[in-house]
Design a protein around this nucleic acid. Structure first.
Lengths: 243, 243
DNA sequence: TTATATTACTTGTATAGACAAGTGTCAAAT
DNA sequence: ATTTGACACTTGTCTATACAAGTAATATAA
């Protein structure tokens, strides 16, 4: 049973998504929503806090909660985090080619910093293409401790749905860095780079709900196909540019 | 008077920062903290929720709140959002050269999407360098409606401190996109690009607390000096890569 | 007409209490 | 020795209530 406030948040999100509450309009006030859903005001406020942190509404003291216009930008790609989900939702001919698949250890650049007791890992390198254009190379190091029996078939599909649905792993948070770096010849060839030797490198350290580190990913993006979108509130700081 | 839960959050943040609570350790439990600060449990929980969303702790049901190791990465640059603050905190010889400063209108690419009634704006283009190395060009369009009398002296210093401290503007949220694009000759020269003609482009739309749009910024980064760090929880989605 | 209060809304903060649910320990039963 | 159960902890959810503070419209007084 999921919590009431999450159900309410999901319901409100849907209603915004489908235009029942339009950008620029005010949502019903907290007491009204509370009456509507049959919950206390605090529960309603928790639901609204979810929409707030997702950038869907802005709460204005003394006035109400406005629906933000960001919906226009955010929704078409919302909740798409993996290549596989993208493939299903959009009408695109997306393919995944496995370049490498073997046992290895977590790179020392990671184990140096995180004191990992069992560095045994599976390495998967995949080339992702859309409409026969290579877009990105994903290099994944997945700790054997949490995913002992990864097969090449699962890597062909979606790793995340295997982790979460089949294995029940609860992926919770990640730290990411984005840089631009020169690529080696193999990468240049795989991504069919022509005018440049630079690629966008996204490095992700992914953690489970219980704070255990379990996956390191290096994504090499073709610079002309890369776009990163961020919504950031001033105080609770997320993305940050370091000079 | 700032809220109790924010004071508690700030206090806990400091204590984590100064090693009073170390990475991997558990914070005192919610009832204990509540007793310590003399507040109710719900107030304590609000404070912990702040640390949670900042990525400082992870709450574990049935166990407690662990201090995350991310502190190591996040703190040296924490709260540094502007070039001016960076200059003060770090021991770096940072300079700002104003390339352009004039009246203009908000670009049509923006006014097309946001229906702005008064597009009159101030344009500021600045070249930022560290240790005599050019790092980034910032192009700011600031609506006259909110900042009528911007001077070249303020642009030389920090725009944000002028907006927030002097004018009392409450900056609240922003949408950002990061892409990699070819630069024109002027930019190539200013940034002293050699091996490439690509720059990292960060476009920001900045909004006030009352949801009014007031600033558009285009930052052109030298690719070899660019680094973006993000902490993202799985559900409340922030940074997102779009293919 | 203009300024000032009143009033009725809105969200923000804080409290006290209750129960659910997950974790770990230790004792008792098997 | 192993499993089971009770217990004492932890955080998660939800309620009901109260007051503070910001907004906007209206009525009142100057």
């Amino acid at each position: 049973m999921t919590a009431k406030y999450l159900q309410i948040a999901a319901d409100l999100t849907n209603k915004i998504k489908h235009g029942q509450y339009k950008a620029g309009e005010l949502l019903p006030s907290e007491p009204v929503l509370s009456e509507l859903y049959g919950v206390s005001r605090e529960t309603t406020r928790k639901a609204l806090a979810e929409l707030m942190s997702a950038g869907l509404i802005q709460k204005l003291r003394g006035k109400g909660s406005v629906v933000l216009d960001r919906a226009r930008f955010a929704f078409p790609v919302s909740n798409i985090e993996t290549f596989d989900e993208l493939n299903k939702q959009e009408q695109m001919h997306a393919t995944t080619e496995i370049l490498q698949f073997n046992d290895t250890k977590m790179p020392s650049s990671i184990t140096n910093q995180l004191d990992i007791t069992e560095p045994a890992a599976t390495f998967v390198e995949r080339l992702r293409s859309i409409n026969h254009e290579p877009i990105v190379i994903d290099q994944d190091y997945i700790l054997k401790k949490y995913v002992p029996h990864l097969t090449i078939e699962q890597a062909q599909k979606s790793l995340y749905s295997y982790f979460e649905r089949d294995l029940g792993l609860e992926i919770d948070y990640a730290t990411k860095t984005i840089t631009v770096e020169p690529a080696d010849k193999k990468v240049i060839q795989s991504l069919q780079l022509e005018d440049t030797n630079l690629v966008v490198v996204v490095r992700s350290l992914t953690y489970l709900k219980d704070t255990s580190f379990f996956q390191y990913t290096v994504s090499l993006h073709r610079p002309d196909k890369f776009k990163f979108v961020d919504f950031a509130r001033r105080k609770a700081q997320h993305g940050r540019i370091i000079l």
